[in-house]
Design a protein around this nucleic acid. Structure first.
Lengths: 247, 247
DNA sequence: TGGTAATGCCTTACAACGTAAGGCGTGCTA
DNA sequence: TAGCACGCCTTACGTTGTAAGGCATTACCA
């Protein structure tokens, strides 16, 4: 937390072509950079797991020592913040000619896609305030979309949060929840579940990965219908058949 | 993971009255037990924080050494599982004469109350499969409630999960989210938000703690209305005015 | 009353973690 | 050629979960 050196700050000094710094004893190696460190961190987290990620392993991946990374990021938390901003930037705020409700739908689907691209990192996402610069910008964008429903400040605020509950809850559950999450130390074996809790076993087919999208859209459309009824008739075309549940 | 001794297993030997084991060098002290360890763990987690919890601190709280705890629980994960079961047991499965929809509503509200009693521990809850014995039993109970809506296995499965997304997302966000969660390393200061993102600042009053319940119920009733329309008319009385949004 | 076994808790030790403090070599600029 | 800045490394500290084993107290049985 005391490190304040920012190498790529005001005076940018790019390495000349052909320049290859080397680990003190070792083969030549591409120079470090924020970009390279971030990319390696994402790769490592998603390949191993969020819990097993460490600065030391990241360093090994980058073929440098752990402390070298602290030349580019003052702390582990700063790295995580950079990753949050990076991933949030992939969730585009819709601005086209869809109805407000459809824009929210697109946003939700886009967020889910991002979550499924970085499933391991969702466990970080779920716990942390989006109060990085990129996070605030993103929240402002989403709020603007929700505000287009025309419900006023209070309704906008509540809808923003209620949608957030559903969408982040879904993202977390699909990536770390019932089916794939950290297990109990001594989980109840599947055959015991099948024998003692047949009703639990019965729903299992619909808990599989290929069923997640349909389930997600079902609940999402519950939320959208509620928002529609709360904020009055849609200002523009809005098909209702899409939101029907077809078994 | 190699420890298999279970002191309170088959041959139960209770300490006689007046018996007080003592730390090797120290004052007499109440004997350890699973019960005492669990209670101390909950207290410590909620008082300090989930992230700062450690076996060693738990031991200090109990005035024993870290390894003494391993006499009662084979691993940290086993302790956490016990806490999960303990807290889940506080979320009662409704069985009375309410309509199925009202039962789900009660269940959701009861889960939220539990979450607010143990806000720190929600960060554990959110990541872990409920595949402890108590967890499976609880899931079976909830599934039975959802099944009473009469939608059949598939609809029951999807509604269970969609409600789960919303409820756990809300629990996590209210306890660790926008307002109180782990912050960025260099958060954007409030005055900068107020200046550069007035729309974000404007919704802030509705993001305060005393507004959470109303927001939660708004989204919950969106979900309930959706479930009602999906599974046909309610088999019994069901007021609709309650679910209106009143500003 | 003495011997043996079980119980309950502690001691020691290890590998891995984030990171503070400071050092060293390379190449750029004067 | 001197000096300096940049980029990266070395060392070290306190903290974590927990494996392996030890020791004192008590219970049980002869």
């Amino acid at each position: 937390m005391a490190l304040r050196r920012k190498p790529n700050g005001s005076a940018v000094t790019l390495p000349r072509a052909g320049f290859h710094p080397r680990s003190r004893k070792g083969a030549p190696r591409a120079p470090l950079s924020r970009e390279r460190i971030e990319a390696a961190a994402i790769g490592l987290i998603e390949r191993e797991s969020y819990e097993n990620f460490s600065i030391r392993k990241l360093a090994a991946e980058l073929r440098c020592e752990a402390m070298s990374i602290y030349h580019y990021f003052p702390s582990r938390q700063h790295i995580m913040d950079a990753l949050v901003d990076r991933m949030l930037a992939e969730v585009a705020i819709p601005t086209d000619e869809l109805t407000p409700l459809e824009q929210i739908r697109e946003l939700a689907i886009s967020y889910r896609r991002m979550a499924l691209r970085y499933p391991e990192f969702q466990r970080h996402f779920a716990f942390h305030r989006l109060n990085t610069p990129g996070g605030i910008r993103w929240i402002a964008g989403v709020l603007a979309v929700v505000a287009r429903l025309g419900g006023g400040t209070e309704v906008t605020a509540r809808l923003f949060r209620a949608f957030g509950y559903y969408i982040t809850g879904a993202a977390l559950d699909e990536t770390s929840g019932y089916a794939r999450g950290q297990s109990a130390a001594e989980p109840v074996p599947d055959d015991v579940v099948a024998r003692d809790f047949p009703a639990v076993a019965a729903v299992n087919p619909f808990f599989q990965k290929d069923q997640h999208e349909k389930t997600f859209l079902l609940g999402l459309d519950f939320m959208l219908d509620g928002a529609a009824r709360l904020t009055g008739p849609a200002p523009r075309k809005r098909g209702s058949g899409r939101r029907k549940f077809r078994s």
